[in-house]
Amino acid sequence: MQILGHQRILELLPRLQAQTLLFTGPEGVGRRTVARWFAAGLNCEGGFPPCGCCASCRLEPHADYLEIAPQTETKTGRKARLLQIRLEQIAPREGSEETNLLDWIATYPRFKTKVAVIDGAHWLGESAANALLKVLEEPPAFARLILVAPSRELVLPTLASRSLEVGFSPLPEAELRTLTTDPEVLAFAQGSPGRVRWALEHPAEFARLESRVQGVLEALRAGPAPTLEALKLLLETDDALPYLGRRLGQLQMESPAYKEALEALSRAQDALSAYVSEDLVQTWLALKLARL
Rank of each mutant, 00 (worst) to 15 (best):
M1C: 07
L4W: 05
R8Y: 02
L12K: 08
P14Q: 08
R15E: 14
L16E: 02
A18N: 13
L22W: 06
G25F: 03
P26S: 11
A35P: 04
A40T: 02
N43H: 07
C44R: 02
E45P: 00
G47P: 10
P49C: 12
P50T: 09
P50K: 06
C54L: 05
R58G: 07
P61C: 08
P61K: 05
P61E: 12
E67H: 01
I68N: 03
A69N: 01
Q71C: 06
Q71S: 14
E73L: 15
K75S: 15
K75V: 13
G77L: 06
A80D: 05
A80C: 05
L82N: 15
L83D: 10
I85T: 10
R86S: 14
E88M: 01
I90D: 03
S96R: 04
E97L: 12
E98S: 10
D103I: 01
I105L: 13
A106D: 10
T107P: 00
Y108H: 12
P109V: 04
R110G: 01
K112D: 06
A116H: 03
D119E: 14
G120K: 01
E126Q: 14
A131E: 07
A131W: 04
L132M: 10
L133F: 06
V135K: 00
E138S: 05
A141R: 13
F142M: 00
V148M: 12
S151C: 05
V155K: 01
P157A: 07
P157K: 06
T158C: 08
T158M: 09
L159P: 01
S161I: 04
S161E: 07
G167Y: 00
G167R: 14
S169R: 13
A174C: 01
E175S: 09
T178H: 11
L179I: 08
T181Q: 14
T181V: 13
P183A: 11
L186T: 08
Q190L: 10
Q190Y: 00
G191L: 01
A199R: 05
L200H: 05
L200V: 08
E201M: 00
H202D: 11
A207G: 08
S211K: 13
V213P: 07
V216P: 09
A222V: 00
G223I: 04
P224Q: 07
P224C: 09
A225G: 00
A225P: 00
P226S: 10
T227K: 03
L231V: 09
L231E: 11
L233R: 15
L235N: 12
D238L: 04
A240R: 02
A240E: 03
L241R: 02
L244D: 13
G245P: 08
Q250M: 08
L251S: 10
Q252V: 00
Q252E: 15
P256Q: 09
K259G: 13
E260S: 14
A261C: 11
E263L: 13
A268M: 04
D270V: 03
A271C: 01
V276Q: 05
E278R: 15
T283Q: 06
W284L: 14
L287G: 11
K288Y: 02
K288I: 05
L289A: 11
L292Q: 07
